[in-house]
Computed example of a mutant assay.
Amino acid sequence: MPKILAFPGSIRRDAWNRKLIQVAVDATRAAGGDVTLIDLADYPLPLYNGDLEDRDGLPDNALRLKALFKDHDALLIASPEYNSSIPPLLKNTLDWVSREWQGESGLMPYQNKVAALMAASPGQFGGMRMLPHLRQILNTLGVLVLPGQFSLPGADKAFDEESGALKSPARLHDLVLELVNTTAALKRA
């Protein structure tokens, strides 16, 4: 069973991407994935600064995140779009996790990982302009990002108010099934 680390790229309490990641986690578990859902608010990090790193080394939360990334086979990320790109919280997290530590390559936590990317927005683009930026960053770090992705425009009307379920989940289910199957196949190879 593939181990999948899931997280939203937002720490806003009522963020659409927090709702989306929860729906995706449930669907991934139903598809056979062993999912660990984390909240980046539980891992506060300073803004990446090489001088700070040289002086103090990696922050404890960066080391905790590196360990989580290394312990999982895949990533499931739902991120908002900020000015047509990824939010600074997510970029900062990816940067800290990519830092070399005690002789270990900074790419180690990303090597042999598969990722599925999602975005939600109340606007008409649904985070679509951010997804290529996140894909490029993860590819550069050595992550195999699935060709399919999930963009949810009109997120303010896309969830059932009572259950929190996505009203039209078929494309999301296809993506998480692809994540589970691809990750499992690569583990067997």
Rank of each mutant, 00 (worst) to 15 (best):
R12A: 14
R13E: 15
R13L: 11
W16E: 11
W16V: 07
K19L: 13
L20I: 12
A24K: 00
V25T: 14
D26N: 05
A27R: 06
A27F: 06
T28R: 02
R29E: 15
R29V: 10
R29I: 04
A30W: 00
A31F: 12
G32S: 05
G33F: 11
V35E: 02
V35R: 07
T36C: 08
T36Q: 12
A41G: 15
D42Q: 15
L45Q: 04
L47C: 07
Y48N: 03
G50D: 14
E53P: 01
D54N: 12
D56R: 13
D56H: 13
D60N: 11
D60F: 02
N61I: 11
A62I: 01
L65C: 14
A67Y: 04
F69E: 01
D73I: 07
A74S: 06
L75V: 00
L76A: 01
S79H: 14
E81M: 06
S84I: 06
S85N: 05
P87W: 00
P88Y: 10
P88D: 05
N92W: 01
T93F: 07
L94A: 02
W96H: 02
V97R: 12
Q102V: 10
Q102T: 15
E104G: 05
L107C: 01
M108V: 13
Y110E: 00
N112A: 14
V114F: 11
A115D: 02
A116Y: 07
L117P: 01
A119Q: 01
P122M: 08
Q124K: 04
Q124R: 06
F125E: 02
F125G: 07
F125A: 11
G126Y: 09
G126R: 00
M128Y: 03
M128L: 13
R129E: 00
L131P: 09
L131Y: 06
R135E: 14
I137A: 14
N139K: 10
G142L: 07
G142Q: 10
V145S: 09
L146S: 08
P147V: 04
G148C: 02
Q149I: 03
Q149N: 13
P153R: 03
